[in-house]
């Protein structure tokens, strides 16, 4: 009896520690084979996870489901305690404020300077102006852009723009950071700077999920690697390596 209750407690501890849970998730579009087919994925708080795979393997669909841009055709998704299948439309903004997101193409507001791009995330979260004036310079210093707060995105290099995007994603101290091909448009030097920054953020407690095509980075960093192919997870390995399909 005592053994069973210990086991139950351990199971609950594991559940509480899980920040992303996908159970039997299938996503089909109107035509063709499903983009995701019966995915099961469990990610704990504080983990650093790579998701790799060829084009069409379902990585982008996975990210869109975690952002609640899409809903699954079948299955359950829980992120930070939110049931993403049942969540009401009005609750989605609050959910997203706890979820930093970085894209390959940076997606900065082009007509606003660095400071305003980062401050925008704080305004959306209705952070008081006084706090915002402390938080934004502090996060810009962390990503190494304190001196460029007045610059417009077009005046920055690709690496700098990606760091602005990361500052914006992190300024509200999200529990999870989703990065969709964050180094896709960057040279190797800038790519490593971004990856080092992501690792630093992870060490401070943020769960980081990175979708990438870059084998060097994946192989070098020795993190958990989830490999996808044709909508299913084909391998999920701690300290894994990039599996080259060729």
């Amino acid at each position: 009896m005592a053994t069973r209750s210990r086991a139950r407690r351990r199971e609950m501890d594991i559940d509480e520690n899980e920040i992303i849970t996908m159970e039997n998730v299938t996503k089909s579009y109107s035509s063709g084979a499903p983009a995701l087919n019966g995915i099961n994925l469990h990610i704990n708080r504080g983990e650093f996870v790579f998701v790799v795979g060829d084009s069409g393997s379902g990585k982008s669909t996975l990210i869109k489901l975690l952002l609640r841009e899409l809903t699954p055709t079948e299955g359950d998704i829980h992120v930070m305690g939110y049931d993403l299948v049942k969540i009401r439309h009005g609750k989605i903004p609050k959910f997203r404020r706890n979820l930093g997101v970085v894209f390959q193409d940076f997606r900065l507001l082009k007509d606003r300077n660095v400071y305003d791009n980062v401050a925008f995330a704080q305004r959306i979260a209705e952070v008081p102006t006084k706090e915002m004036k402390k938080n934004v310079p502090s996060i810009l210093a962390m990503v190494g852009l304190a001196g460029k707060y007045k610059a417009k995105p077009r005046q920055l290099s690709g690496g700098e723009q990606q760091r602005v995007a990361m500052a914006r994603a992190l300024v509200n101290r999200p529990a999870i950071l989703l990065a969709d091909e964050p180094t896709g448009n960057l040279d190797p030097k800038n790519s490593w700077e971004i990856m080092n920054l992501l690792e630093e953020i992870n060490e401070q407690g943020t769960t980081v999920l990175v979708v990438t095509h870059n084998p060097e980075i994946v192989n070098e960093m020795k993190k958990r690697v989830i490999t996808m192919k044709k909508g299913v997870i084909v391998s999920d390995v701690e300290n894994g390596e990039y599996i080259n399909e060729d």
Binding site: P93, R96, V101, R107, F120, A121, I124, R168
Partner: peptide, 9 residues
């Protein structure tokens, strides 16, 4: 789109 991704209502 950017506003919505960041969590704007």
């Amino acid at each position: 789109n950017i506003m919505k991704y960041i969590g704007a209502t």
